[in-house]
Amino acid sequence: MTNQNLSRRGFLKASGLTAASAVALTLSGLSISTNSWAMSLTKIDTHTGKSLSRLCRVLYPHTSLDEMYYDACVEALDEQTKTDNDLLTLLTLGVKALDSTSNSAFIDLPSESQLAAIKQIEETPFFNKVRGHVVVALYNNEKIWSTFGYQGPSYPFGGYLERGFNDINWLPNH
C-alpha cells in the first residue's frame, strides 16, 4: 500500500500534477480502484484526515462522486498545514470537538447523527474554514466537471461556435 502510494505520488510529482488532481489518473485510464486509494497526509493524522474527508462529503454530498475527490480536498488542506501550524491545530481540535458531540467518534456515527453533530459546530471558525475550503477545492477539481455537464476550458477547442453554443432543441416554437 505504502509503496503503491509512493510510486503514484512519485509519478504525480514527475508529471507536475497537484495533489487535488491526483484523481486524473483514474479517469485517464491508469485505473486505481477505490480500495487502493489512500489519502496521503504529512501533517494531519489519519483519524483527523478521515474525519475531515467525511465532513467534506456531508457538507457537499454528491452520490456521483467517489471518496477520492473528498480525500483530495483534505490533501490540499494538509498541504496548507505544512506552512500553517495554526491551521493544523484548528483542524485537529475541530475534529476532536466533532467527536465529542456524542459518545461515538464522528466517523463512526450513522449519517443522520453526523449531520446533527455538524449542526452543533456550525458557527465555529473550524467549520467556516473547512466549508470555505471545500466549496472551492471540490468544485474546482476539473476531474469532476464532466459529471455535472460542465465542459471546462473551451479555448483549446476553438470555443463553442461550432460546438453547440446554440444547439438547444426543446424550446417552445415562436
Binding site: V58, L59, Y60, H62, V135, V136, Y139, Y150, G152
Partner: peptide, 19 residues
C-alpha cells in the same frame, strides 16, 4: 462555470438541498 456557481449560488450554504 461550476466552480464559481458553487461559491456564489448561495454563499455559506451546504447540505443536500444545495448540492
Amino acid at each position: 462555470g461550476l466552480p464559481f456557481l458553487a461559491a456564489f449560488l448561495n454563499p455559506g450554504s451546504w447540505g443536500k438541498e444545495f448540492t
